[in-house]
Simulated scan of single mutants.
Amino acid sequence: MKKFKKLLNEDKYFKSELDLLGNPSTENLWQTFFEKNTWIFGYGLNFVFSTNLEDKKIEQVVSGFSFNEYGKRVDSLLKTRGIISSLCFVEIKNHDTKLLNNRQYRADCWSVSNELSGAVSQIQKTVQKSITNLPTQNRINDSNGNPTNEIVYLYKPKAYLIVGNLSEFITEHGVNESKYSSFELFRQNTSSPEIITYDELFERAKFLLDNEINK
Rank of each mutant, 00 (worst) to 15 (best):
F33I: 00
Y160G: 05
S25T: 12
F202V: 00
S178G: 06
R73L: 02
Q122V: 06
N102C: 04
F4W: 03
N9H: 07
A119E: 10
I213N: 12
K57Q: 11
K98W: 03
T171F: 02
P24C: 10
L201Y: 05
G71Q: 03
K93N: 00
K3A: 00
E59T: 11
L20C: 07
L20A: 08
Y198D: 05
P135H: 04
N165E: 11
S178R: 12
I162S: 04
S117E: 15
S178I: 15
Y198H: 06
N114V: 09
P157K: 15
N211C: 08
C88T: 07
Y160C: 05
N37K: 10
S111T: 10
L116G: 04
T197E: 08
N101W: 02
N138S: 05
G145P: 03
I83G: 07
K158V: 01
Y198S: 06
I196A: 01
L99D: 00
F65M: 09
N214A: 13
I170S: 14
L154G: 10
I195M: 02
S178L: 11
K15M: 13
E91I: 02
K215S: 14
D11F: 13
G174Y: 04
V112N: 06
E69C: 07
L29H: 11
Q124C: 04
N149P: 02
T97A: 14
L116N: 07
S130M: 06
Q122H: 10
V163S: 07
I92V: 13
F41M: 06
I131K: 12
F41A: 07
L20W: 05
N101Y: 07
D199A: 02
T97S: 14
L209P: 00
I92C: 06
I131W: 02
L21C: 09
R81L: 15
V62Y: 04
K98V: 00
I40Y: 01
E59D: 05
S191T: 15
L208F: 15
N146Y: 03
A119P: 12
I151V: 15
N46G: 15
L29P: 10
V74G: 03
L209S: 12
T197R: 07
S86N: 14
L7P: 01
D55N: 14
R187N: 04
G164N: 13
D142R: 01
K56M: 01
K3T: 01
N37P: 08
V120Y: 08
I213D: 09
K56R: 11
K79M: 06
N46T: 11
I140D: 04
V163K: 11
S85C: 09
F65P: 02
S111A: 11
S191W: 09
G71L: 03
E54V: 15
N214M: 07
D108C: 07
K125Q: 14
E177V: 14
V61M: 08
G174P: 04
R73N: 03
S181R: 14
V163Y: 15
Q60K: 12
T126C: 12
D210C: 05
E194M: 11
T26F: 09
I40Q: 06
S191P: 05
F34D: 08
G42I: 09
Y43S: 06
N141C: 13
Y198W: 15
L18Y: 05
